[in-house]
């Protein structure tokens, strides 16, 4: 298993760069990965989604799909694509230290 150092902390990642142990995640790591994904600043709206994904991840062990996020976090599809452009569910899962979301919707 590969590791990498993000925001001064060494964490386990898979070959696609997704963290494999959600317990190693910190908010500083989220800020750092967000920058890599082209999101310079995480606003309150971003955090609302990230926190929701963390909750789903903690409960189910899996990253939520985009539809699960829009249904559960009170956010529209449009807003998701504005907050996390080009592949929002994948991006937010990456930032939230979860695996790649599975499922077709």
């Amino acid at each position: 298993m590969a590791t990498r150092t993000i925001a001064g902390k060494t964490v386990a990642v898979n070959e696609e760069g997704f963290m494999t142990n959600p317990a190693e995640w910190t908010q500083e790591i989220a800020v750092e990965i967000a920058k890599e994904e082209g999101i310079e600043e995480l606003t309150e709206a971003h955090w609302k989604v990230i926190n929701f994904c963390r909750e789903v991840g903690a409960a189910s062990g899996k990253a939520p799909t985009l539809r699960t996020i829009t249904n559960g976090a009170g956010i529209t599809t449009k807003e998701m694509f504005t907050l996390f452009p080009k592949g929002p569910a994948k991006k937010v899962a990456h930032i939230a230290g979860l695996g790649k979301p599975e499922g077709c919707v």
Partner: peptide
Amino acid sequence: VMGWAALGNG
């Protein structure tokens, strides 16, 4: 389904 997957991959 495929369109949604594509959009989800940017």
